[in-house]
Design a protein around this nucleic acid. Structure first.
Length: 289
DNA sequence: CCTACCACCTGTAAGC
DNA sequence: TGCTTACAGGTGGTAG
């Protein structure tokens, strides 16, 4: 489950079902799912056996479970990862990668991931950006705009220092985290800005507008349980959110813009797609990307 | 240093 | 009905 709202839905599920419980043992079913854990799958299993889960935290699209051993179990869902609460007796899912069994004999926490772009690792906690303590491989990730400590003036300055297009900047997790392809397009539509607008030409008010658009759309998506076009994007109980019904441009090529009635266009961009309204978001004369 | 591109995977849907 | 191609909510490493 990719972007910030979907990851937050999963984090809340983990907080409800896993915090306070003790892991009996972990089983790594696929080595690729733990490739970021440098010491290997057996080491990850050893570090998880017998430790209790103290908290479930998130920055951007990175989710971690703070452990009473002092380390953290970092989870990135990649493009297709799921964290599922399942009875220990449930048969293994087709794409089960890691299973956590608990000392109380209650439900497992299972990491299921079709494409294996996601993964787990056990890492030390280190000082991160914005004064927060984060797992080591999250140290370079910028605060996300739903964090209380998000520094808007610093974000404005960082964007204007960039020499790139606005959407590239929104997707750069070292500038602002949590925004992916769907919510970038939705935020740009809300702000009435084109994805290729050169960052160095943006006025502070325009940067504020697109960031505010991202915050609004992600909060709305969170309230709807996230965006889900298929069964890949589900909460810990396997349920889909319904924010896809509220998207204004993403995935809506040829359909009417809700604001002006023009047909939504789709452009190839960064090996994926960008959806926008040709009238509300005119292409700038000078464009980046 | 900074920016842009590509590889990393599996599955589904559309096109021929 | 096959077979091929395009595409999918992301990230890190690396070439320029």
């Amino acid at each position: 489950m990719p972007e910030l709202p979907e990851v937050e839905v999963v984090r809340r599920g983990a907080a409800t079902f896993a915090v306070g419980r003790t892991i009996a043992h972990a089983e790594v079913h696929h080595p690729r799912a733990v490739r970021r854990h440098a010491a290997g799958g057996a080491d990850l299993e050893a570090r998880l056996a017998g430790v209790a889960i103290a908290e479930a935290e998130r920055r951007g699209k990175f989710l971690w479970l703070a452990l009473d051993s002092g380390e953290a179990l970092l989870v990135h869902l990649g493009m297709s990862g799921q964290l599922l609460v399942q009875p220990p007796t449930a048969p293994p899912e087709k794409h089960l990668r890691v299973r956590l069994a608990f000392a109380d004999g209650g439900p497992d926490l299972r990491f299921v991931d079709q494409r294996t772009f996601g993964g787990l690792s056990v890492e030390p906690l280190v000082p991160g950006r914005g004064g927060r303590t984060v797992p080591r491989s999250v140290a370079h990730i910028a605060p996300d705009p739903l964090e209380p400590g998000f520094d808007l003036p610093a974000f404005r300055a960082a964007v204007r220092r960039r020499r790139t297009g606005l959407k590239r900047a929104l997707l750069d997790q070292t500038l602002v985290s949590g925004i992916g392809n769907i919510y970038a397009d939705e935020a740009l539509w809300r702000a009435g800005l084109h994805y290729a607008r050169p960052t160095e030409t943006l006025r502070p008010a325009e940067i504020d507008r697109v960031l505010a658009g991202a915050v609004e759309v992600m909060n709305a998506a969170l309230a709807a349980g996230g965006t889900s076009f298929d069964s890949l994007y589900v909460n810990v109980n396997g349920e889909s959110g319904y924010f896809d019904r509220s998207l204004q441009v993403y995935g809506r090529e040829g359909l009417e813009c809700a604001r002006c009635g023009s047909a939504v266009r789709r452009d190839a961009f960064m090996n994926r797609s960008s959806f926008s309204c040709p009238r509300c978001q005119p292409r700038p004369r000078r464009a980046h990307g």
